[in-house]
Amino acid sequence: MIHTIAFYLFATLVVASGAITILARNPVHSVLWLILAFFNAAGLMVLVGAEFIAMLLVIVYVGAVAVLFLFVVMMLDIDFAELRAGFIKNFPLGMLVAVVLLCEIVLGVGAYRAGALHLGTPDGSAATAVGVSNIKAIGTLLYGRYLFLFEAAGVILLVAMIGAIVLTHRQRSDTRGQNISRQIARRPDEATVNVKPEVGKGVSL
């Protein structure tokens, strides 16, 4: 019974906060509702026994990605009138995306109803054995059967990361950077000078 209650609680909250994400006027509120949706989706994952995925969802999306979203959105100076002006222009494109998503949902539900939904391989050999923890099962699959695909994904991510750094990196000559090793190597006798000026003369630095 508690399973059912928890499922409906999480599912309702996911759908509701997902809806409010796109309906909220304030972008910061939108991001916060999105975070709530992520969090409740993690709850759903726990319910189906995928606790590893649930934790990853919270760590990666809620803990890192959404924080960056929030970080950027908070710093934006948003002009609401300008946002609304773009609404009419982008309306057809938005409708197109909506129709595609609707088709996908209908297709998904149809496939599920037809009983054609096989998770993993048709003979079930990739399905998790009973009594094996999530992490072990995923680890065995990722580092065994799908090792090369997994490593390829890793290489692609590495290239993307280096690419992002190369694209955004720029040498700036107008700022003075901190040279930490030089700061640490500095000693008091080279940084300060002790002078005894005559009265009324002052010092020249």
Binding site: F52, M55, V58, I59, G63, A64, V67, N134, I135
Partner: peptide, 12 residues
């Protein structure tokens, strides 16, 4: 089973 990941998730 994922106790340490839970701690990491919550602290984030």
């Amino acid at each position: 089973n994922v106790g340490l990941l839970y701690v990491l998730a919550i602290s984030s």
